[in-house]
Design a protein around this nucleic acid. Structure first.
Lengths: 226, 226
DNA sequence: CAGGATTAGATACTCTCTGTCTCTTATTGA
DNA sequence: TCAATAAGAGACAGAGAGTATCTAATCCTG
């Protein structure tokens, strides 16, 4: 036989606030949230918890407490941890496609995209990424499709400027810099260095698309130009 | 106060064999294993369990039962699941370095290495790889260092035949085919296709090391060249 | 504005798994 | 022969996932 919750007693009107929730105003109880307001708060809490403790230590209970609610409210919306974490990521992550760089120089554009991608990787710990991938079995396609699109735009502009020959560019090549960055991040579990980005671009990507790395191959950067 | 196991009764000499263990001989009890014999059996059981259910469903209890022993015996040797799984992998995986192909042709050599690598990936489900990476935080370096070494050997031989210019080959480029294969495996969660391997080699690797993809362009092909 | 529908928030509960510990006894080695 | 070692059995404590049930706050409709 189950022991059920209080039957009539109101939940202690004074000082029954959740332990360390984002402050339910003060003193009294916060009004009950619903709809989008609540959902936003849940996703924000999930993201904060994810950043704070990482995926492997992410618990539904933890998210619920941080959001000032309970597990049931989470399970009503997402079937499990992985889906919640993914939703939290999508809810917050700014897309690479939001601002496609256009510096007038292919190398600069590509570096800008890679730095952006690195920044957005850093927001998600490797632990989180692996955990997600392990539970989702596969990377959600929409997260993979953005980058090649962005790269193609950049390359098309470079082709118009005569920097590259579009005929040499296959989808695989367009995806290459992003793939290598992601691989490195997954394997080393740490954010990649600027040198690594330069290597990708100068040793591999630019040669493949037929654009000589401007000024010398000393990597990291290049001398004054024109 | 604890309720402890039988005090004097011998553990039911007849038919108390572990549920589905690899057959403890028959009828009676198997003799008690020790040392290397036992350790081998444990690692083999761990690998079998890993292949059978994947890392996310791998339990110490499951391995113990399969090995016909108990959890304590496992914990005496490995501090946790991840270390056990890693040990099981190392114990069984044949290294790529064991047989470096030498066909007399760079493309064939590289394809052979990639196929070997693919085969050995297939033995470990993506789920397992992600799970391991998530818990280990980072790929054990020794698992990463083998491949570039093998590739350099192949490339050196190709250079002696005049197929490539070693001066063009950086460590990053040597590691490239393996990295791309691993990335694809991690992201898609499935074994990669032959076409994918050809793409890597013909579109990316060979051009970078200055060796034209031989003859047939039928694979994924490339714009008319020379 | 009243009353019904919805569902937030609180809490209990079941299950599974990790990692630890204790106990008995088979096996080894001196 | 006998003491030291460790295998194998299983109890146990604790954490967390996911489910279920209840009360009451809020919304919506008439």
């Amino acid at each position: 036989m189950r022991i059920q919750a209080f039957k009539t007693a109101p939940p202690a009107p004074t000082s029954s606030a959740p332990p360390s929730a984002p402050a339910p105003a003060e003193g009294g109880r916060r009004s009950r949230r619903r709809g989008t307001t609540l959902e936003d708060a849940l996703l924000r809490a999930a993201w904060e918890e994810l950043s704070a403790v990482g995926y492997s230590k992410l618990t539904m209970e933890g998210v619920a407490v941080r959001a000032g609610t309970s597990k049931a409210v989470l399970y009503r919306r997402w079937p499990n941890r992985a889906q919640l974490a993914l939703a939290a990521y999508r809810h917050r992550a700014p897309s690479v496609a939001d601002q496609i760089p256009d510096t007038g120089d292919l190398r600069d554009d590509v570096m800008a995209v890679l730095r952006h991608l690195r920044r957005s990787s850093e927001e998600m710990s490797p632990d989180t990424l692996h955990g997600l991938l392990a539970e989702l079995r596969t990377m959600p396609p929409d997260l993979m499709e953005v980058l090649p699109g962005v790269m193609m735009t950049i390359l098309r502009r470079a082709a118009e400027r005569g920097e590259v020959d579009l005929g040499k560019v296959t989808p695989r090549i367009a995806a290459l810099p992003g793939d290598l960055l992601r691989h490195q991040f997954l394997i080393t579990g740490r954010s990649v260095s600027d040198d690594f980005l330069s290597e990708i671009v100068d040793e591999i990507f630019l040669p493949l698309v037929g654009a000589a790395p401007r000024g010398g191959l000393d990597a990291t950067r290049r001398p004054a130009d024109e």
